[in-house]
Write a protein that binds this DNA or RNA. Structure first.
Lengths: 218, 218
DNA sequence: CGATTTATTGAAATAAATCAAACATTGTGG
DNA sequence: CCACAATGTTTGATTTATTTCAATAAATCG
């Protein structure tokens, strides 16, 4: 029941920002949007920070996690381009957020409660639902089922149902699914042997039988 | 990785209600409160029902669960006297709620959004936090740790740190902690052997070393 | 009281973790 | 460009925790 200890501490980097109306998301918005860039491994926020902003991923991928007393790490969620993250239950952050690869994100300050209240509620509901869905996977599924549903979901979120690129390492996946890296790796191999997927390389996966994958993951 | 199938279908009972100002919770409230009574096993709401009310438990205990495609059951939460439940992400219920024993509950209608909005948000946040806490237990804890933290939490919620009464069966506990009834039972025995708890009877537990119990449950 | 459900215990099977090593990929400095 | 470290991934052998199957014991109910 032990898991990975976190190897490298996140870099405290100084992201640079742009305010470019030609940038798609900036142009689409009524107000100008500031995009911040972070390099792989950079910390976006840490547990204990005030939870005063939300973030939208413009490109790249983010992991949100918590550290346990014994050094184990639980990755609560991965966030891909187009997704908003940073919503938390309290005024202080309980989780850490890090760039998995080079990313660009838009910050949105939660200044006035009145201004954003309906928005916040809908985000809270969305977070709740995502968490409940994730709960189901962890509570009741085998390693095989967890990995299958993870891949199916990643494909869905990336918009390409046949090919998935995994920006995160096996260790990240393991810490998300409550497994070890060895089990994750063996499960990929099993999925490959059963002709459900193909490994282009370790991070690029071709989904051969999506239907079957979905059914395995419940 | 299989679990209990649900044996008995819940009773569709016809609860009777009172509106008694002498009833503690009714007296404390500015508006008169209606208390509904349900017998053990009675269904309070079902998946698919409109999620238009919240409930406060006056006495007794409630289980909230979902059923999986293969008949497995996941109990998301138990609710004891004084606690409010019934908050859901969507307009339709995803979960079932049942009386574990004889209960009394107060329903509160979520009629006008404006009226209760700040309230709803705080409940959403509370639900989110509870779910995240529960997530941690399921994702990263052994059977021993799960049962230990479950008992410690139940004691805390009942307000008596030395003695816990468990209104729910071993199967309920198993379906909540993602274990089998046999493992739950064996874990109680192990906790007893290690002099952390004592079994007055199978549903009444004396906590001998609370501190240790909490530390095991992280 | 007998009958049925609920809880405990035991033995065997299994899934996943752990320990250990090989293999692949990437980047670095010579 | 190669040798080589460093990192990430896969595979193998063994151990361990938990489930499954099976039986007994205890509690509850009519």
């Amino acid at each position: 029941m032990l898991a990975s200890t976190v190897a490298q501490s996140p870099l405290r980097s100084h992201p640079f920002t742009i305010d470019d109306p030609a940038f798609p998301s900036a142009a689409a918005s009524p107000r100008p949007q500031i995009v911040s860039f972070f390099q792989a491994g950079a910390e976006i926020y840490a547990a204990g920070d005030p939870a005063s902003s939300l973030y939208r991923v413009e490109f790249g991928a983010v992991r949100v996690y918590r550290l346990l007393a014994d050094g184990r790490r639980q990755i609560i969620a991965f966030h891909l381009a187009g997704e908003t993250f940073g919503f938390e239950a309290g005024v202080e952050r309980e989780f850490f957020a890090e760039a998995i690869n080079a990313i660009g994100i838009c910050r949105r300050h939660l200044s006035t409660v009145d201004d954003v209240a309906p928005d916040i509620l809908s985000l809270a509901l969305q977070s709740l639902r995502m968490t409940q869905r994730y709960l189901l996977v962890l509570a009741r599924h085998s390693a095989f089922e967890r990995v299958a549903s993870f891949l199916a979901e990643m494909a869905e979120r990336q918009g390409d149902l046949e090919h998935v690129h995994l920006p995160m390492s096996r260790m990240d996946i393991a810490d998300h699914l409550g497994l070890t890296i060895e089990t994750v790796s063996r499960t990929f191999t099993r999925l490959k042997e059963q002709r459900l997927i193909e490994l282009v390389d370790s991070r690029d996966i071709r989904i051969l039988r999506r239907r079957a994958l979905l059914e395995i993951g419940e």
